[in-house]
């Protein structure tokens, strides 16, 4: 009920006057131009044909003869579609690992009493102080000694259960009223049954947030796959794009087409799911 009342809250001060409204929209449009114009410029470049001068001093946002040739050509320069598939494989492994691993551990930490739970929680928390870049060298040494250097599994494995997600799932499970569990215990439900029938239905929101951000994180990651992967056939999309940039800088249309192949899926995913994201923000669910 309280959450519902918050959602319809108009926000800020009472109704704005027409002058304030006009000023606000003017500023909104200005910021909009600053945020989206580089993307639009890149999209426009990717659609320009070879005969059109992309270096023109009087830049044109609309291509004269829009063409998809550059998208076909970038696939000739680098195996861009198999790079995208590689990125998807990594994302799929990381999402599966986090959804299962963080759910199980989060549930045990929030709802079951056992020796060492406090110590474990402390250790999970402590890892958050360490920026990932600090351990990236020895992370690489570990992955290499597992025989996973230059493999997609090697890229995916270290992040397959993120400590932050364990803590987020613990918070989500802890918010379920204790009485629901107690009633189930009286009915003879085991811990696994309670996780399935009481826990999971109540943490769907957090699970979808974790899924979205795990996907974005895996799809966008650059430094770690750059370190693990050596064979250009194994590259993920971000590493492949930098490779394209280093090798074929002569034609900005191709690089523009490549960046759009990486950018469009993530924007579609985010635009489709932004409702859940911003609802969480307004309810104050997302902090830091």
């Amino acid at each position: 009920m309280a959450a519902h009342a918050k959602r319809v809250r108009p926000g800020g001060l009472a109704a704005a006057g027409p002058a304030e409204k006009a000023l606000r929209y003017a500023l909104l449009l200005l910021v909009l131009a600053l945020t989206v114009s580089p993307f639009l410029w890149q999209l426009s470049t990717s659609l320009k044909s070879l005969t059109e001068d992309v270096y023109s001093r009087t830049p044109t946002f609309l291509p004269e003869h829009p063409t998809l040739d550059n998208y076909a050509q970038v696939a000739d320069a680098i195996p861009v579609w198999s790079y995208a598939a590689n990125s998807l494989v990594v994302a799929a492994i990381v999402i599966t690992g986090n959804v299962i691993g963080a759910t199980m551990a989060g549930y045990a930490l929030a709802r079951l009493r056992f020796r060492g739970a406090k110590l474990l929680l402390g250790l999970f928390l402590a890892t958050l102080v360490l920026p990932g870049e600090v351990t990236i060298v020895s992370q690489y040494v570990t992955v290499r000694s597992l025989g996973l250097a230059d493999t997609l599994l090697g890229v995916a494995l270290p992040g397959a259960i993120a400590m932050l997600n364990v803590l987020l799932m613990r918070t989500a499970f802890a918010a379920i009223p204790q009485e629901m569990d107690e009633a189930a215990v009286i009915d003879g439900a085991t811990a696994w049954q309670r996780l399935r029938h009481i826990g999971l239905p109540n943490v769907r929101g957090m699970l979808s947030v974790i899924t979205i951000f795990t996907f974005i994180g895996a799809w966008d990651d650059f430094l770690w796959p750059l370190i693990v992967l050596t064979d250009p056939d194994h590259y993920t999309l971000t590493v492949g794009l930098q490779y394209l940039n280093g090798t074929f800088t002569s034609n900005p249309r191709l690089i523009a087409a490549g960046t759009m192949i990486s950018f469009v899926p993530i924007v579609v995913v985010f635009a489709a799911l932004q409702r859940y994201f911003f609802r969480g923000v307004e309810e104050g669910a997302i902090k830091g």
């Binding site: 580089p38 410029w41 966008d220 650059f222 940039n245 960046t259 950018f263 985010f270």
Partner: peptide, 20 residues
């Protein structure tokens, strides 16, 4: 949503766009 778009884009994509 539009203002948040640069956040969800990969730093590599953003840097390639700005490089251009």
């Amino acid at each position: 949503t539009a203002f948040y778009t640069p956040v969800v884009a990969s730093a590599v994509v953003v840097a390639l766009i700005w490089g251009w």
